[in-house]
Amino acid sequence: MRVMVLVKATPDSEAGGMPDPAMMAAMGRFNEELAKAGILLTGDGLKPSSAGKRVAFDGADRTVIDGPFAATSELVAGFWLWQVKDMEEAIAWVRRCPNPMPGPSEVEIRPLYEPADFGED
């Protein structure tokens, strides 16, 4: 089963400062563990939403919206794509993760659709 592991943004990540070197080192060690275990498919950090754009769709119309975006708690600051046997394994790995932010933070785990989810058609 593949899961997308989303590191939710915080006011600190949206401020755009570089992460603490000790936290980066701890995260690097965690990523090495994921890779050695065959879990890590890819992952990366994202720049703050002030560097981003959104494209809103309404029928044939497209509207480009410049960042930054409101509702920091609904934004993503980074991600991993993991291959795990089940959701319990993903949770176990996230519990081992260093806190990705200087203060309180959240990590969301979302399963990806697999071909079997769509049936035989």
Results as ranks from 00 to 15, higher is better:
residue 48 P to H: 02
residue 119 G to E: 01
residue 66 D to F: 10
residue 110 R to H: 12
residue 63 T to P: 00
residue 96 R to F: 05
residue 70 A to K: 05
residue 114 E to S: 09
residue 73 S to L: 14
residue 119 G to A: 00
residue 99 N to I: 07
residue 58 D to C: 00
residue 68 P to K: 05
residue 118 F to W: 13
residue 65 I to N: 00
residue 109 I to A: 08
residue 87 M to W: 04
residue 36 K to R: 14
residue 16 G to T: 06
residue 106 E to Y: 14
residue 58 D to E: 03
residue 74 E to C: 04
residue 78 G to N: 13
residue 100 P to F: 07
residue 55 V to F: 08
residue 62 R to K: 03
residue 120 E to R: 02
residue 65 I to D: 00
residue 10 T to W: 01
residue 19 P to W: 08
residue 91 I to P: 07
residue 1 M to A: 12
residue 73 S to K: 15
residue 48 P to K: 01
residue 11 P to E: 15
residue 38 G to S: 07
residue 121 D to F: 15
residue 28 G to C: 03
residue 96 R to T: 01
residue 85 K to F: 07
residue 102 P to Q: 09
residue 44 D to S: 08
residue 27 M to C: 06
residue 29 R to K: 15
residue 40 L to K: 09
residue 22 A to F: 09
residue 105 S to D: 10
residue 94 V to L: 04
residue 84 V to P: 04
residue 55 V to M: 13
residue 48 P to R: 02
residue 30 F to K: 01
residue 79 F to S: 04
residue 42 T to H: 14
residue 94 V to A: 04
residue 73 S to W: 13
residue 95 R to D: 01
residue 23 M to S: 13
residue 83 Q to M: 01
residue 104 P to R: 15
residue 100 P to K: 04
residue 93 W to I: 04
residue 22 A to W: 08
residue 63 T to H: 02
residue 47 K to S: 10
residue 14 E to I: 00
residue 86 D to I: 01
residue 39 I to D: 05
residue 23 M to Q: 13
residue 33 E to L: 11
residue 62 R to L: 00
residue 17 G to V: 09
residue 45 G to E: 11
residue 13 S to T: 06
residue 47 K to D: 12
residue 82 W to V: 04
residue 60 A to D: 13
residue 85 K to T: 12
residue 83 Q to N: 12
residue 80 W to I: 03
residue 3 V to T: 12
residue 73 S to I: 14
residue 15 A to T: 10
residue 110 R to F: 09
residue 121 D to L: 15
residue 20 D to W: 12
residue 51 A to D: 08
residue 18 M to G: 15
residue 34 L to C: 00
residue 49 S to W: 02
residue 41 L to H: 11
residue 62 R to M: 03
residue 117 D to F: 10
residue 13 S to H: 00
residue 69 F to S: 03
residue 107 V to E: 02
residue 90 A to Y: 12
residue 21 P to Y: 13
residue 69 F to D: 03
residue 20 D to G: 10
residue 108 E to Q: 08
residue 25 A to G: 14
residue 33 E to S: 13
residue 120 E to G: 05
residue 23 M to F: 11
residue 85 K to C: 03
residue 39 I to V: 14
residue 94 V to W: 00
residue 39 I to Y: 02
